[in-house]
Design a protein around this nucleic acid. Structure first.
Lengths: 200, 200
DNA sequence: TTCTCTACTTGACACAGTGTCAACTTTAGG
DNA sequence: CCTAAAGTTGACACTGTGTCAAGTAGAGAA
C-alpha cells in the first residue's frame, strides 16, 4: 500500500469517478479504471486492496470535492423548522445527481460486499440524521403533525428522500431534478407540517 | 428443453422459491437450487436456459400459487375512489412480503441482465396500472387533490409503494407490515384526497 | 428380449472478473 | 553507483455461469 496522498492514488480515484459518473454503476471494472487512469490493473491494487475499498475511498474523495458535509449542514442555520426542512431537501436534492453514479455502484454491491454495505449504510445514517434534525426542529416549533412521533416522521422522511426514489422519479417518471425538489418539498410540507390556517 | 409441465420443472421452481424466500436474494446460485431440488446442476439447464429465465419463471409460478392477479385486481370493485386506494394498498402490502425474496434477486440482476430487467419492469408496470386506476377513481369522485395532475399523483403513489421503500421501512426502520400498511394508507390519504371537512 | 427415446448424471471446459504472486524495469535520492 | 519505491508484465487461483460430450437408467414398443 502506497502513501495516502500519492498522485497516482488521486488519478485512480478520479478515473473511477469519471467512469461511474456515466451511470454504468456496477459495470465499471478494475481494468476499466486502470486504463482510464493510464496505469496497469495491478498498480490499482497497490493502492486499494479491493474494489469495494476503492469505491468507498472514491465516495469520500467525491465528498471532499463537493464540500458535501458543509452543504448538507447548511440547513442547520435555518430560522424555523419548516425552513430547515426545505433547505435540507434542497441541499439533498442537489447532491443526489452528483453522487448518483457511485451510489449506484455501491448499492449494487451492498448485498455481496460488507465494506460496500458499511460505506453505504454509514452514508444513509448521516442522511437520516439530517432528516431527524429537521423533524426535531419542526417539533420544537410546534409545527409537527401530531399524528406522527418524531421517530415515525423521521422514518418516513428518510424513506421518501431515498436515492432509489429519486432514481425512479427522474428515470422512470421523467421528472426533472427541479420538479423532484419542489414536489418533495410540497409533499413533506403537506405530510408533516400542521396547517397554520387551520390552527388560526 | 423439456416439456413445460414436467414434475422436475416444478421441483426446480419450488426449490428456487424455497431458497429465495429466506431472503438471500442474489446469493442463491444454480448449484444451490439444483441441490435443493435433488438433481444435478446440469439438469437445471435442461429446463431453464439461464438463471434469469429460471427466476422469471419462478416469479410467474409464485404468482399462480398466490392468485396474485385476482388479489390485486380486487380493489377494482371498491365503491369509491378512497376505498379503492385503500383496498389496493392493502392488497399490495400483503403481497410484498410474499414476493420479497424473489424480488430482491430480480432487482439485483436488473442492471446486468436484460431478461431480469424486463421481468421486473413488466411487474412494476402492472403495479403502476393499479396505482393509476386508483388515482383515476379518486379524480372521478372529485376527491383528487387539485395540486396534482393524475400523472404526477400516479408517479408519487407508485414510488411510495415501491418494494425498496417497503424494505427500508420494515428492515431498517423496524416497522411491522401492519404498521407499513396503515401508515401508507394514512399518508396517501393525506396527500391525495381533498379534505372533505375543509370543503364543507 | 432387445431397441430406442427421454430425462438425468458425470466430468471437463470456456469465459469473465477479482484478487494474488513473483520477477523485472524505471526513476529519484543519497 | 546503489537502493528503495512505484509501476509493469505475465501467470495463476478462485467463483459462478453456461456449454458440451459421453454415459446411464428406465419405460414403452417391436
Amino acid at each position: 500500500m502506497s502513501s495516502e496522498n500519492s498522485e497516482t492514488r488521486f488519478r485512480i480515484l478520479q478515473a473511477a469517478l469519471d467512469l461511474l459518473e456515466s451511470g454504468q454503476g456496477n459495470g465499471v471494472r478494475m481494468t476499466d479504471i486502470a486504463r482510464q487512469a493510464g496505469i496497469s490493473r495491478q498498480a490499482v491494487y497497490l493502492h486499494f486492496n479491493t474494489r469495494a475499498e476503492l469505491l468507498v475511498s472514491a465516495t469520500h474523495y467525491l465528498d471532499k470535492l463537493h464540500n458535501t458535509d458543509e452543504r448538507l449542514a447548511a440547513s442547520r442555520s435555518a430560522p424555523t423548522g419548516v425552513k430547515r426542512l426545505e433547505t435540507y431537501i434542497d441541499a439533498w436534492g442537489k447532491y443526489i445527481p452528483e453522487i448518483h453514479g457511485i451510489a449506484k455502484a455501491l448499492l449494487a454491491m451492498r448485498d455481496s460486499d460488507d465494506a460496500a454495505a458499511e460505506a453505504w449504510d454509514e452514508r444513509m445514517r448521516a442522511m437520516r440524521e439530517g432528516c431527524q434534525a429537521a423533524i426535531k426542529a419542526l417539533h420544537h416549533d410546534g409545527m409537527l403533525n401530531p399524528d406522527y412521533s418524531q421517530k415515525t416522521a423521521t422514518d418516513i422522511l428518510w424513506t421518501m428522500l431515498s436515492i432509489r426514489n429519486w432514481e425512479q422519479l427522474t428515470d422512470q417518471c421523467g421528472w426533472t431534478n427541479k420538479k423532484y425538489i419542489s414536489e418533495i418539498k410540497l409533499l413533506t410540507r403537506r405530510i408533516f407540517v400542521v396547517n397554520e390556517t387551520e390552527e388560526a
